[in-house]
């Protein structure tokens, strides 16, 4: 086991402990468990930050050219988005819902860390490219959390409308909190995604001297922006809240997910990942 895989295993352990305490919180609703899960999450987040930063500094380029690097960055982005969300609105129960995903990604990073074959030449990993990738990851992470909170809103709203309040629904926060948090995540995700797309466009102009909109990944990314712009128009312009606006959040996320993962699997793209 190399130093890197050892570190990745440690991070996975940190997130694993966080998961354990978040499950305990879900079961017992005790603040001690929530506090401990947040501490382990922060420890994992800091550890991943050190790994990514350390590799960037020592190797001279951002470590997004290997699968473990990509998974670590994605997990790190989710943890970043999650911690930002906790600062905005400390809804303890959301830790129980999201931390398992962060743990899973970090665990996959550890597994793939044994085979660190680069997916692309390191000389292609310019600072601009690295920022493009990282901003897009951050945007996707925020959209993921926004989607998760929107699903929680959908479930909670459905129960309140149907007068069927199940016992686990008492663990979910108020609709107003879920609504505000969704807007917060989508707004931040929109900015990061826009930034990532802007930097990506500059890269594209440098390489191909045009923006290849025929690439489904680029086209999909722009469509995601349009859907989320409609979401803001609906809320702030037409003052439509509730399930209708949450439907747009979900639609936007499914497209973002397809653009992020599905395009590479089902379609042809110039992007390596």
């Amino acid at each position: 086991m190399t130093l890197l895989t050892g570190l990745l295993a440690t991070i996975a352990f940190f997130y694993g402990f966080g998961c354990w305490y978040s499950f305990r919180y879900y079961k017992n609703l005790d603040n001690t468990s929530d506090g401990l899960s947040a501490r382990w999450l922060t420890a994992g987040f800091l550890g991943q930050g050190i790994i990514l930063g350390g590799k960037w500094v020592t190797e001279g380029f951002a470590p997004f050219n290997t699968m473990d690097g990509i998974l670590t960055a994605l997990s790190f982005s989710l943890a970043t988005a999650f911690l930002i969300g906790r600062l905005k609105s400390p809804v303890a129960i959301l830790t129980s819902l999201f931390l398992p995903f962060i743990f899973l990604l970090s665990f996959l990073a550890f597994i793939t860390g044994f085979n660190m074959a680069p997916l692309m030449d390191s000389h292609l990993m310019s600072s601009g490219m690295a920022c493009h990738i990282f901003l897009t990851f951050l945007g996707f992470a925020h959209f993921t959390l926004g989607f998760g909170v929107a699903v929680a809103f959908w479930i909670q709203e459905g129960q309140l409308k149907q007068h069927q309040i199940k016992s686990w629904s008492y663990r979910l926060p108020a609709l107003e909190i879920l609504d505000n948090l969704t807007v917060f995540y989508i707004a931040l995700g929109f900015l990061f995604w826009l930034g990532g797309l802007g930097l990506g466009s500059i890269q594209a102009f440098q390489v191909w001297h045009r923006l290849p909109l025929d690439d489904p990944k680029i086209l999909g990314s722009f469509l995601v922006l349009i859907i989320y712009a409609c979401f803001f128009l609906l809320r702030w312009g037409l003052k439509i809240h509730g399930k209708k606006s949450m439907t747009l959040v979900m639609a936007g996320y499914f497209l973002a997910l397809f653009t992020f993962v599905g395009v590479r699997v089902f379609l042809t793209t110039r992007h390596l990942f």
């Binding site: 909670q156 309140l160 309040i165 016992s167 629904s169 008492y170 979910l172 926060p173 108020a174 609709l175 107003e176 909190i177 505000n180």
Partner: peptide, 18 residues
């Protein structure tokens, strides 16, 4: 979970508003 009609109403209000 609340078990009186009045406390259920208050609890529902707390499920809707922050």
């Amino acid at each position: 979970m609340p078990t009186s009609v009045s406390s259920v109403a208050v609890d529902l209000a707390k499920k809707i508003f922050r």
